[in-house]
Amino acid sequence: MAHTETHEKTLADKILERTGVDVRECYQCGKCTAGCPMVQFMDLTPSQVMRLVQIGDREAVQTLLSSQTLWSCVGCLTCTQRCPKDLDPAAVMDALREIAYQEGLVPDAQRNVLKFHQAFLKTVEHTGRMSEVPLTALYKTLSRDFFSDVLLAPAMLLRGKLPLVPRVIGGRKEVRRIFKRCLDPERPDRADEETQEDRP
């Protein structure tokens, strides 16, 4: 196993650091798998995810970070709520997803989930809020999935649920700076000169 070969932090340690969840406590009862609403869309069951983090060798890490499961987890917390060991598999999924994203290991089949999240964040980064039209447009461009849900648009418009003018907030530059610091903590701020004008 990797952690016996090197002095690097094991995956379990990284997860503990990020989430406070010590996966060594997992005794593989399977209750998380049993209750997961998305499990049929996963290649690894939640309990297998926990097990692979416990193993933590190179092969396990590879399997985990490139798995479909991370992108199928909807964060419903059913697993966390029912875990008899009071662990938080949902938080472990979040942490693994983030690591997979940072390391560029998102599987092709899950690109749409990633694209949607990216489109969502892009929209928020630029305007401070999410607006359906720019979000959908951006998502469709990124994912090249032009046709799904198109039929819903007219009906949404009709019901006043698809405002065409994007919502923009006064502090959008401030929001952009928050994004920069979170996404790119190493890089110094370039938006400093704008600070004065967009403080509300």
């Binding site: 964060g75 979040d94 997803r97 994203y101 990633l114 928020v124 809020r129 999410m130 929001v175 928050i178």
Partner: peptide, 17 residues
């Protein structure tokens, strides 16, 4: 001047955000 909470997207990709 409230802003978006980040929803699932921020939660999925960047825990600081």
């Amino acid at each position: 001047d409230w802003n978006c909470c980040g929803a699932t997207a921020a939660h999925s990709l960047n825990h600081d955000l």
